[in-house]
Amino acid sequence: MDNGRSHMRDKAEIIDQQVLFARLDTCFATLSEPFRQRYFDVLTHTLRVCCAICSSGSLLILFTSLTTSYWVTEKTHQGLVHTGLWEMCLGPTCHYIEFPVPEFLNVTRAFVMIAVVCGIASLLCICISFEYVSIGPIYLLAVAGLLSFSTGFFTLIAISVFTAVNKSKKVYLQHLMIFGSSYGLCWASIPAYITTAAAHFFPRHKRKLH
């Protein structure tokens, strides 16, 4: 009989301890919730700032590539000629590429310009997300991420066309033409935008615009 009572007492003590631990866990969880939320808010804001910086830098690289005239550099009997998407320069003298413009150059221009537009739209979405993370069901950073990925994709198409055509030219095969810094910047913008696109999908928040 005493053994039975002792067993019952031990069992009751164990149950009491379990109830106590459960209450303590609930208490700590309630106390730590504001701290977890504050940490989450700081983290998402930091990631959003990083996204804005990455997007701005990537857009600057791509825009510089579009507007500068160092896509290819060619040795001629008149001297060193460097050419971009819009103009050709011999020394300090530059002039716009005259019609008829080669088809591959029009294709390259078109895709790079589409990429720039997508890059600008992506940056605008990030800027708006500092005030409103989502508009209705649309999560702005996810849209910005898709736009950043699209920017990198369109840039890749543009530079692939440009590279394929120029590498088949006789002057390139004779080592009289090399790709320049503007061309290199265009390539650099691709991984920059892919990295930016990946970064957009980390921060999450529940604040919405009604």
Rank of each mutant, 00 (worst) to 15 (best):
I15P: 00
C51I: 01
D10L: 14
V19D: 13
G136I: 08
G180Y: 03
L173M: 14
F162S: 00
L43V: 12
A110D: 06
D25H: 13
I53G: 11
I114D: 10
F149I: 00
N3L: 13
G91E: 04
E13W: 07
G184E: 01
H95E: 13
L173Q: 15
Y193F: 15
N106S: 12
C51V: 06
A188S: 12
L156D: 09
V72C: 02
A22F: 00
T196C: 15
E33G: 05
I61N: 05
N106T: 10
E103K: 11
A52H: 12
M113K: 08
T26E: 15
W187D: 02
K206P: 00
G136N: 09
F162W: 03
T163R: 06
T196F: 05
L185C: 08
R38C: 11
L20M: 12
S189E: 01
V112S: 07
N166I: 06
F111M: 08
Q78F: 15
Y96K: 10
F149S: 04
V101R: 08
S181W: 09
I114L: 15
L62G: 03
I128Y: 12
A12L: 15
L80G: 00
A121C: 15
V117W: 09
S168Y: 01
E98D: 10
V81D: 00
C51F: 02
S168E: 12
V101I: 15
A22W: 01
I53D: 08
T67S: 08
S122V: 01
C27R: 15
E131R: 14
Y96M: 06
F154S: 05
D41Y: 10
H95F: 09
V161D: 09
M177F: 02
L85S: 03
R207E: 14
K167M: 11
I14V: 09
L173H: 11
L141R: 08
F99Q: 12
S56H: 06
R204C: 06
K169D: 08
L31I: 13
Q37W: 05
Q78P: 02
T67D: 04
F201T: 12
Q174P: 00
C89T: 05
S160R: 02
H7V: 12
I114W: 09
P34S: 08
P92S: 13
I157F: 11
H77E: 15
F99K: 14
F202G: 05
A115H: 04
M113V: 14
T44M: 09
Y139E: 13
R48W: 02
L185W: 04
L173P: 01
P34A: 06
F162E: 00
L147M: 06
A29W: 00
V133M: 13
D10V: 09
F153L: 13
E87Y: 04
G84K: 02
G145P: 05
L80H: 05
E33L: 14
A52P: 08
T44N: 14
F21Q: 12
L105S: 02
I120D: 10
